[in-house]
Write a protein that binds this DNA or RNA. Structure first.
Length: 259
DNA sequence: ATGACTTGGTTACCAAGA
């Protein structure tokens, strides 16, 4: 089974690329983030015609997540149980489903904006709610993974130049501690291989030639439990999809599972 | 030059992303 996660930065703008990528990659289950549309605007018909069912949890202008599957889509959970609100809103940043015997969460962790900003506190609380929500599945025998845009670089080497990130979000001790607490439920960071250069970055800023200069970050992560991680046959970042006009600023992370 | 792209909406500017 081929499982992937991809922050598409607007499923509306990316639809043509998304359909082409699903076909060329042969992906069975795809976790999407940053749909940037509401439920009515989600391209369910086009995806169904391509053979994929969809579990969608979408906000409208921001956020929005989905799980696409052509190997079954059961027991859908819309939203993270007990997730904190921001400005009184429970943002739509998580959706789960069971696909072909594998349980997956597609998550879009809050950005945090700046250290000390209310959004940063919200980010840490959100990661805490994620930990609580996945603990039982993480410890279970069924293959299980949390996939998505975590907006945290786990190690200094997961950003192109750590000195540029002095005092910035995405690399702080508190954010990394929240990831460590999440892993402590029984999850392993399934690190993909890069198809070029030495580090498996998954995001490159649109500005200042970030992609050509490989000024990237590894913030799109796959955290799998023991049954999932032990079934991984291959994992890579499809940086080809970051190329050209009309690309998302994130590349898909692809996992091949022997299940 | 306290920004340098891209997206969708309170559209001919703005917030947000990371």
């Amino acid at each position: 089974m081929r499982i992937a996660t991809w922050n598409v930065n607007s499923v509306t703008v990316r639809l043509e690329r998304l359909l082409a990528w699903l076909e060329s990659s042969g992906t069975d289950v795809l976790c999407l983030q940053e749909l940037k549309c509401d439920l009515d605007a989600f391209p369910a018909e086009a995806l169904r015609a391509a053979g994929y069912e969809a579990a969608v949890h979408a906000d409208g202008r921001w956020n929005g997540v989905a799980v696409l599957s052509r190997v079954g889509l059961d027991d859908v959970t819309h939203g993270l149980p007990g997730c904190p609100e921001y400005d009184g809103v429970a943002e739509r940043r998580a959706v789960a489903a069971t696909c072909g015997g594998v349980r997956v969460w597609s998550v879009y962790v809050p950005n945090g904006r700046e250290v000390g900003h209310p959004h940063y506190t919200y980010k840490l609380e959100w990661l805490g709610a994620l930990r609580t929500s996945v603990a039982a599945d993480a410890a279970g025998a069924r293959p299980f993974a949390v996939l998505g845009d975590f907006n945290v670089a786990p190690e200094d080497t997961d950003v192109w130049d750590i000195t540029v990130f002095e005092g910035a979000t995405h690399v702080t001790e508190a954010e990394r501690a929240a990831l460590a607490a999440l892993r402590a439920t029984g999850l392993t960071d399934v690190v993909p291989r890069p198809l070029k250069y030495d580090r498996p970055f998954t995001y490159w800023d649109y500005r200042q030639l970030g992609f050509p200069k490989n000024r990237g970050m590894r913030i799109d992560l796959v955290y799998g439990n023991q049954a999932f991680a032990s079934s991984v046959k291959d994992a890579y970042v499809d940086r080809e999809e970051r190329k050209g006009k009309g690309a998302s600023d994130h590349a898909p992370v692809v996992i091949d599972l022997d299940v």
